[in-house]
Design a protein around this nucleic acid. Structure first.
Length: 351
DNA sequence: AAAGCGTGGTA
DNA sequence: TTACCAAGCTT
């Protein structure tokens, strides 16, 4: 294997030629040339990209930047609107922490993001990866960025056969050895691009990899088998019920879910039995019908089968729980709740 | 420290 | 259809 500095330079050359154009990205070389990316945009993109694909993030990122172009604007935003705009992207604690972080930066840091990984790390929603990524990309700090892509690239390059997550410390060390002090922001994005486009989880394109002649896993013919992972536990199936009620004027009966748990802070249909909240009785007195179809949805750690009850509610309906939402935008609902909405609307308005 | 926390694309 | 996986963080 060649010297780390030479390999880093090689990768940067590849990045100069092949960097993807992404809405939050400045051109290769710009970061170290003093034309740095907006730290707010870098932060926003990195939070959205946590465990989330580039394809899914693009539209959300553009929308958020339109609605809230600065951290001060986001800090002043309405919580419910932010949660609604985040709906569909998943991991909703990120949106709650996004607001917390924006308000700390706007209120306690004069609207200026800290420029060191250590200080960034202290903000809500910013962990080791995100702190290093912002410091490197927005402030050109030589931090080592370790995400799933980097772990995969290092596991292959050094043929680390220890399964994840046990291999994390070793992979971090290997990644640190490879990190250059020149163009750290471009290098961070280059390694991640390499993992996303060439050193992919399945069928890596080793033939066109700038590190192909250095890679120990490729030499041994085991690149596609790394990194190894501990076996995952099977997901159990949980059952629940959701009450989807529509008032005569078209308003829907929803409730704001409590912060902290599953889908915390999001709008949802009254019900339960699947999320630790217990089975609830109907949220209003009405003739609840069973449409005969159920919602199927898979969360991180369980499969859900959600029975539905639908009802038309009178104009003077006084619900036991929840509140009526006029002009509901289905896109404001988390995906499982939007699935229930789609099914219920079919039942309420048969074609 | 292990578990909780979403979703959509892909094979 | 099912299982795997992705630019992780929090408790």
């Amino acid at each position: 294997m060649r010297d780390a500095a030479i390999m880093a330079a090689e990768l940067l050359g590849w990045y100069d030629r092949h960097a993807r154009e992404l809405p939050w990205r400045v051109a290769p070389g710009a970061g170290s040339a003093g034309q740095r990316a907006d730290p707010y945009a870098v932060w926003l993109s990195e939070i959205m990209l946590q465990q989330t694909t580039v394809a899914a993030v693009k539209a959300y990122f553009t929308r958020f930047l339109e609605l809230w172009p600065t951290v001060e604007a986001l800090a002043a935003a309405d919580d419910g609107q932010v949660m609604g705009e985040w709906a569909g992207l998943g991991y909703y604690a990120r949106a709650r922490n996004l607001l917390k972080c924006a308000r700390i930066v706007a209120g306690e840091h004069g609207g200026v993001f800290p420029d060191s990984a250590e200080a960034l790390r202290a903000l809500p929603g910013i962990g080791p990866y995100t702190a290093a990524a912002i410091a490197a990309i927005a402030f050109d700090r030589p931090e080592t960025v370790v995400d799933g892509n980097v772990e995969r690239v290092m596991a292959r390059l050094f043929r680390v056969e220890t399964p994840l997550p046990g291999a994390k410390p070793e992979l971090r060390e290997r990644a640190a050895e490879m990190t250059p002090h020149r163009r750290p922001g471009d290098y961070a994005q280059a390694v991640m691009d390499l993992g996303a486009t060439i050193c992919t989880p399945k069928r890596p394109a080793c033939g066109i990899c700038p590190w192909r002649d250095d890679c120990r896993a490729r030499a041994g013919g085991v690149a596609a088998d790394l990194p190894a992972r501990e076996a995952k536990k099977p997901k159990p199936v949980r059952h629940g019920v959701a009450f989807v009620g529509r008032r005569q004027d078209g308003a829907w009966l929803l409730e704001r879910r409590p912060d902290g748990g599953l889908l915390g802070g999001m709008l949802g249909w009254p019900g339960g039995g699947w999320d630790g909240s217990g089975v609830q009785s109907p949220p209003a007195d009405a003739d609840w019908r069973d449409p005969g179809a159920e919602v199927r949805h898979t969360f991180t750690h369980f499969h859900l089968r959600l029975a539905l009850r639908v009802a038309e509610l009178p104009a003077d309906c006084a619900p036991v729980r929840g509140e009526f939402v006029a002009a509901l935008r289905p896109s404001d609902l988390p995906t499982v709740m939007r699935k229930a909405f789609d099914l219920a609307r079919t039942a309420l308005d048969p074609a």
